[in-house]
Deep mutational scan, measured.
Amino acid sequence: AEIMKKTDFDKVASEYTKIGTISTTGEMSPLDAREDLIKKADEKGADVVVLTSGQTENKIHGTADIYKKK
């Protein structure tokens, strides 16, 4: 799966169907969080990951919607 910015995804959204939401939390780098989200998306058969939230304090927390091409 590839990560797309919401603004970029909005241009092609009609080509995809939302298949779920994924999240990651833990003591990790932003890059590790990104890789974890991609891994989870791949496991669910998603083609595209669109980040919906991200937070960093002591731990990273990120959520994303996942989509499959129609």
Rank of each mutant, 00 (worst) to 15 (best):
A1E: 00
E2W: 10
I3F: 09
M4N: 01
M4G: 01
M4R: 01
M4C: 05
M4H: 02
M4A: 02
K5E: 15
K5L: 15
K5A: 13
K6T: 05
K6Q: 14
K6A: 11
T7G: 10
T7H: 10
T7S: 12
T7K: 10
T7D: 12
T7C: 12
D8N: 06
D8E: 09
D8R: 03
F9H: 01
F9A: 01
F9R: 02
F9Y: 02
F9Q: 01
D10I: 06
K11F: 06
K11W: 05
V12W: 04
V12F: 05
V12I: 12
V12E: 02
A13M: 07
A13L: 04
S14Q: 11
S14L: 08
S14W: 12
S14M: 09
E15A: 10
E15Y: 14
E15R: 11
E15T: 07
E15W: 13
E15M: 14
E15G: 09
Y16G: 00
Y16S: 01
Y16T: 00
Y16I: 04
T17A: 07
T17H: 12
T17D: 10
T17E: 13
T17P: 00
T17F: 14
K18W: 15
K18S: 05
K18D: 02
K18C: 11
K18H: 15
I19W: 03
I19R: 00
I19P: 02
I19F: 05
G20E: 03
G20F: 03
G20Y: 02
G20D: 04
T21E: 13
T21F: 07
T21W: 06
T21G: 03
I22C: 04
I22M: 03
I22W: 03
I22Y: 01
I22L: 07
S23Q: 10
T24K: 01
T24A: 07
T24P: 04
T25L: 09
T25H: 13
T25K: 09
T25M: 10
T25C: 15
G26Y: 10
G26F: 12
E27M: 15
E27W: 14
E27T: 13
E27I: 12
E27F: 14
M28I: 06
M28S: 06
M28D: 06
M28K: 08
M28W: 04
S29E: 10
S29F: 09
S29V: 05
P30Q: 13
P30R: 03
L31W: 13
L31I: 10
L31C: 12
L31H: 13
L31V: 11
D32H: 09
D32R: 10
D32P: 04
D32S: 09
A33M: 12
A33V: 09
A33H: 09
A33T: 07
A33R: 09
R34Y: 14
E35G: 06
E35V: 11
D36M: 10
D36V: 09
D36K: 05
D36F: 13
L37W: 04
L37E: 00
L37Q: 00
I38M: 07
I38L: 14
I38H: 02
K39T: 04
K39L: 06
K39G: 04
K40A: 05
K40M: 08
K40N: 03
K40H: 05
K40C: 06
K40P: 01
A41H: 00
A41S: 00
A41D: 00
D42Y: 11
D42N: 15
D42C: 13
D42F: 11
D42E: 13
D42H: 09
D42R: 14
D42A: 13
E43T: 06
E43W: 05
E43Y: 07
K44L: 15
K44F: 14
K44D: 03
K44Y: 10
K44W: 14
G45N: 07
G45E: 05
G45K: 05
G45Q: 05
G45F: 06
A46F: 02
A46G: 04
A46H: 01
A46P: 00
A46D: 00
A46S: 03
D47C: 08
D47R: 02
D47Y: 04
D47P: 01
D47K: 03
D47F: 03
D47T: 07
V48E: 02
V48A: 05
V48H: 00
V48P: 02
V49C: 05
V49P: 00
V50K: 00
V50G: 01
V50F: 00
V50P: 02
L51I: 14
L51V: 08
L51C: 11
L51A: 04
T52Y: 08
T52H: 12
T52S: 10
S53P: 06
S53V: 12
G54S: 12
G54M: 15
G54C: 15
G54R: 07
Q55S: 14
Q55Y: 15
Q55W: 15
Q55K: 10
Q55D: 14
T56A: 11
T56I: 09
T56M: 12
E57V: 08
N58P: 08
N58I: 08
K59M: 14
K59P: 14
K59L: 11
K59W: 15
K59G: 13
I60S: 09
I60R: 10
I60T: 11
I60D: 08
I60F: 12
I60M: 12
I60N: 10
I60C: 11
H61V: 15
H61K: 11
H61D: 08
H61L: 14
H61Y: 15
G62D: 08
G62S: 13
G62A: 15
G62L: 15
G62M: 15
G62F: 15
T63K: 09
T63F: 10
A64K: 03
A64R: 03
A64F: 14
A64P: 02
A64N: 02
D65S: 05
D65C: 09
I66Q: 03
I66G: 02
I66D: 01
I66F: 08
Y67L: 01
Y67H: 01
K68W: 04
K68H: 04
K68A: 06
K68R: 11
K69N: 04
K69W: 05
K69V: 05
K69Y: 07
K70L: 09
K70V: 09
K70E: 05
K70Y: 04
K70A: 07
